[in-house]
């Protein structure tokens, strides 16, 4: 799973058109055309999401390379 790095500004647009993330350390803005819920589940369950849609793998890689998200250990699962 991934988490948003500290310091990142995130704004989900209220018309559900997407969300923007601003990285103050590189001054880069990224806009993703997904809703906040979709984004959160993508970070949380990245393995599953990437298995279903190969291209999501690139998205996560890209965000990680840009210093916006970072991999973090998965929380203990009950399964």
């Amino acid at each position: 799973m991934f988490t948003l790095k500290k310091g990142m500004q995130l704004h989900p647009f209220s018309d559900q058109s997407g969300l923007s993330i601003y990285n103050p350390f590189t001054t880069e803005i990224i806009t993703l055309r997904i809703t906040l819920t979709q984004f959160e589940s993508l970070l949380l369950d990245s393995g599953k999401a990437c298995a279903e849609h190969a291209e999501l793998h690139h998205v996560l890689n890209d965000l990680s390379e840009k210093g916006i998200i970072e991999a973090s250990p998965s929380p203990a699962r009950s399964s």
């Binding site: 803005i29 279903e52 291209e55 890209d62």
Partner: peptide, 15 residues
């Protein structure tokens, strides 16, 4: 200090 925003629409498709 750059001039304009380095705005790049890194548009990902809706999953």
């Amino acid at each position: 200090q750059g001039g304009q925003a380095q705005g790049k629409s890194g548009k990902a498709k809706t999953p």
